[in-house]
Design a protein around this nucleic acid. Structure first.
Lengths: 246, 246
DNA sequence: TCCTAGCCTTGACCCAGATCAAATCGGACC
DNA sequence: GGTCCGATTTGATCTGGGTCAAGGCTAGGA
């Protein structure tokens, strides 16, 4: 499978380096982007966007983690995307949000007002291209996830999620030992369940089982050590490199 | 939810009118597209693309139906997309296919060699924009499907699929009675199962159940009549209009 | 220090959908 | 018409994961 490179860009004074929308842009274009950008902070649990609401900005996550969810009338909810630093939020060309976006931790967003962003986009082909690439990556991620949701067992689902989180985390900070990974779970058991199409009880049981079997080690409830990524990816049912992203 | 308009365009001598990649293009641009396009026919069951293979064209489906699937080593497979006439296949900027694409019926594709298409794309912003829109629609479709896969019951899954097929079919041919729909199932029970993350037996049972309950009528095994789309969408667990596409 | 509120874990039991097995249907081909 | 084969239906049984219920762990507040 295809593991897209983490989307990061340097937009001047954002606290992290990332090259998302403005990779390859020249300085004029960057200046134009700078002119319409602003920052906004959301507290953990706060809603960034509510499905159906008017949405007059697009932007990318600078720090923190947000989730993209859909809900049925009876309350069943499914997470359809996990937004990590550098991920893009919002859809140019549409003025209402299609999903609920909720901050899981404190989230800082680098926002662009939608109209000026769209204007800029139609003037600078780079940006449209970049956005196309990012969208295609997201599409691949969504499709990979369809396989997880439709055909994997609970244990494989958990292993898949851990493997993705471990790899996304690893691409943020350089690792020495390529086989060992250490990271903090950014999600509650309930959020994991919503991502995996499971119940929180099943998530809890399977995490315990993986711990018992030595696939992972836990320190507290959130701090995870993966002694052997290969083993984890086997558990996930992934072949060679375990098509991951998101 | 958002029901994207069917992507169709008129590319000169294609047997159907569609406005996919070249909507809004002027005549010069159309001519440039014409210059690099060619047609190719695939028989039912024939593979159009094999995951991991080199892919040197992109294109859109002119007629027939193809499926986009992912497979695990042990044979479990999940359909991740259904390609109906006018849908776009292939990813500009990547030279290997990410999925298996298989013709379900005889399929005619309007292809563009990838390199010239990419060149053309970088010269004509319209096309990149159009592609971005189409990709965003597909992403919405994939995410909608994640909700189906992750949280719906077997009966709701079947109803969701039928509702999507009925609506996509309806947007191809004009309908008088907006409540009634008649169409042919383009998929075997097994393909439906692969789409829905079920087994073919369960698909068969639930289709029978929906027939018994008067939600649909069957003539033979493939010809479906939906007497009341509202009822069907209720069964699908969809609110108002039942987020559709694909 | 204790209390409280979220999380999280674990156990007991149940059921929707998987699995295994057997017909039946329908079209293509002789 | 008859045979064959793949697609479909239907039945019987099994089981992974859902549901319900009872504690446990930890951080923050008083």
């Amino acid at each position: 499978m295809n593991v897209p490179t983490i989307q990061t860009f340097d937009c001047g004074d954002c606290p992290i380096r990332h090259r998302a929308v403005c990779a390859r842009c020249d300085s004029d274009e960057l200046e134009a982007l700078d002119a319409i950008k602003y920052y906004r902070t959301y507290d953990a649990g706060q809603s960034i966007t509510w499905s159906g609401d008017r949405m007059d900005f697009v932007g990318s996550v600078v720090s923190g983690i947000a989730t993209l969810t859909q809900t049925m009338e009876d309350g069943r909810t499914q997470m359809v995307g996990l937004l990590l630093p550098s991920d893009f939020v919002g859809r140019p060309g549409r003025d209402t949000a299609a999903y609920n976006v909720v901050a899981t931790s404190t989230v800082v967003m680098c926002c662009f007002r939608r109209k000026p962003f769209e204007d800029l986009m139609s003037r600078t082909p780079h940006i449209a291209h970049r956005l196309l690439e990012m969208t295609l990556d997201e599409l691949d991620a969504a499709r990979e996830w369809m396989l997880v949701l439709g055909r994997k067992t609970a244990r494989e689902k958990i292993a898949s999620l851990l493997s993705i989180l471990a790899r996304r985390d690893a691409s943020l900070r350089p690792e020495k030992d390529s086989n060992r990974r250490v990271f903090d779970l950014p999600l509650t058991r309930e959020a994991m369940a919503d991502y995996l199409g499971l119940t929180l009880e099943t998530v809890s049981r399977q995490v315990s089982a993986l711990r018992k079997d030595g696939v992972i080690e836990l320190e507290g409830k959130r701090h995870v050590t993966v002694p052997d990524m290969g083993r984890l990816m086997e558990e996930a049912g992934d072949d060679s490199d375990g098509g991951g992203f998101l």
